[in-house]
C-alpha cells in the first residue's frame, strides 16, 4: 500500500488502457473512521479479487468530507482512475457548510453499504416504547433531551424528521450534539439525557447486554436479528439510512463511467466483499445506476427541507 497520489495519477495518465485499471480512492476523512475503513476495505477486496492490481487510498480529512470532495472534483476531472468514498453525512455537510462543491460535481456510481439509526433509552428509563417517547416529546419537547452525533448530522436529521412527523415543531427539539459516538453513548448510559440516537452498531453491545433499551430502528422493514419495531410501525413516516457510496470523477465519458460501474459491481458481488461486510457488521445495500441516482436526489431534497425546518440551514 504505497500512497502515491500524484504518482498514480501520472502513471494512470501515461499507461495504455489496460484490462485492470489502477485506482486511487480518496477517503475524505481521517484514518480510522467509517469512510476510511470503507475505502481501505474496497482497496483490499479489489486487489484480492483481481479487479484492480494497484489501488491506493489517500486521506483528505475535513468538514464532513466536503474538503475531500472539493479537492476531488477540481483535481480529478476526466480521470477514470480516481474514486472517492462518501455518504449521507456528506449530503448534510454540503448544506450546513454551504459547500460550493456538491455531489452534482462528481459522478456517483453506487451505494455500497448502509446503517440504520437506532433510538435507545437507558434501561432504567420510564419510557418503554417509541410511543411513550413520542408522547413525552409532544407534551414538552424541551424536556426530552436527545444525545447524538454532530449538529446537522444523520442523527440530528433523524430527530428532526421524527419531531416533524409527530407534529412537533422541529426547532423545539432539545438535541445535544456530542463529538463521536463514544461520548454520546456515555451520556446515555450515565442517565444524563432522555434518549439517544445513533447508528445501530454503536449501541448493539449495550442493547444485547440489557443496559440500553432499543425503542425503534429507522429502516423501512424490520431488520433481521434485531428485536425492535421500525419507526414507521409507530405511525411516524420516517426512514433514515446512513449510507456510504463510491463516486467517480466528473467529466467522464459514458464508456469510462460504464467501466467504473462494472468494476464496482464486480466488487459488490464478490465473495471477498460479502465477507468484509460480515466481519465489519455492515449491511449490504448495494444500489447502482438510475435507481441510486433517484434515491440520491430524493435524499438531498428531503435533507435540505429538514435542515431548514430545524433551523440549521437558512
Amino acid at each position: 500500500m504505497k500512497q502515491f497520489f500524484l504518482a498514480s495519477i501520472l502513471a494512470g495518465a501515461l499507461a495504455l488502457p489496460a484490462v485492470a485499471a489502477d485506482y486511487t480512492i480518496i477517503a475524505p476523512a481521517n484514518p480510522g473512521g467509517g469512510w476510511d475503513q470503507t475505502a481501505r476495505s474496497i482497496q483490499t477486496v479489489m486487489q484480492e479479487e483481481g479487479i484492480s492490481s494497484n489501488v491506493q487510498v489517500q486521506n483528505v480529512p475535513g468538514a464532513g468530507g466536503t474538503i475531500g470532495l472539493a479537492q476531488f472534483a477540481s483535481q480529478s476531472k476526466g480521470n477514470a482512475n480516481a474514486l472517492i468514498v462518501g455518504g449521507y453525512v456528506m449530503v448534510g455537510a454540503i448544506l450546513t457548510n454551504k459547500s460550493p462543491v456538491t455531489l452534482k460535481d462528481v459522478t456517483p456510481i453506487a451505494r455500497l453499504t448502509g446503517e440504520y439509526e437506532a433510538i435507545v433509552v437507558p434501561a432504567a428509563s420510564p419510557l418503554k416504547t417509541m410511543g411513550d417517547l413520542v408522547e413525552a416529546l409532544k407534551k414538552d419537547p424541551g424536556a426530552v433531551s436527545w444525545a447524538g452525533g454532530s449538529a446537522g448530522g444523520t442523527d440530528h436529521i433523524a430527530v428532526g424528521l421524527i419531531a416533524k412527523a409527530a407534529g412537533v415543531d422541529p426547532t423545539k427539539i432539545n438535541y445535544i450534539a456530542f463529538s463521536g459516538g463514544g461520548e454520546a453513548l456515555a451520556a446515555i448510559l450515565g442517565n444524563q439525557v432522555t434518549a439517544g440516537i445513533s447508528g445501530y452498531g454503536e449501541f448493539e453491545a449495550q442493547v444485547k447486554s440489557g443496559t440500553l433499551r432499543l425503542l425503534a430502528v429507522s429502516s423501512a422493514e424490520r431488520l433481521e436479528g434485531i428485536d425492535a419495531p421500525t419507526i414507521k410501525e409507530g405511525g411516524l413516516d420516517v426512514v433514515v439510512e446512513n449510507w456510504r457510496m463510491i463516486a467517480a470523477a466528473p467529466g467522464l465519458s459514458d464508456e469510462q463511467k460504464a467501466a467504473v460501474s462494472a468494476d464496482i459491481e464486480k466488487l459488490a458481488k464478490s465473495a471477498g466483499w460479502q465477507e468484509t461486510l460480515k466481519t465489519k457488521g455492515w449491511q449490504d445495500t448495494y444500489l447502482a445506476g438510475d435507481a441510486f441516482a433517484e434515491q440520491l436526489a430524493k435524499d438531498i431534497s428531503s435533507t435540505e427541507t429538514v435542515l431548514k425546518d430545524i433551523g440549521l440551514v437558512q
Binding site: 500500500m1 504505497k2 500512497q3 502515491f4 497520489f5 500524484l6 504518482a7 501520472l10 489517500q58 486521506n59
Partner: peptide
C-alpha cells in the same frame, strides 16, 4: 517514511525516479 512506513508524502520528479 513514504516507501517503508507508508506515510503519504507528496512525490515529485525526483521521487518518481525511485518508484
Amino acid at each position: 517514511f513514504a516507501g517503508l512506513l507508508q506515510l503519504s508524502l507528496p512525490a515529485g520528479p525526483l521521487e518518481h525516479l525511485f518508484w
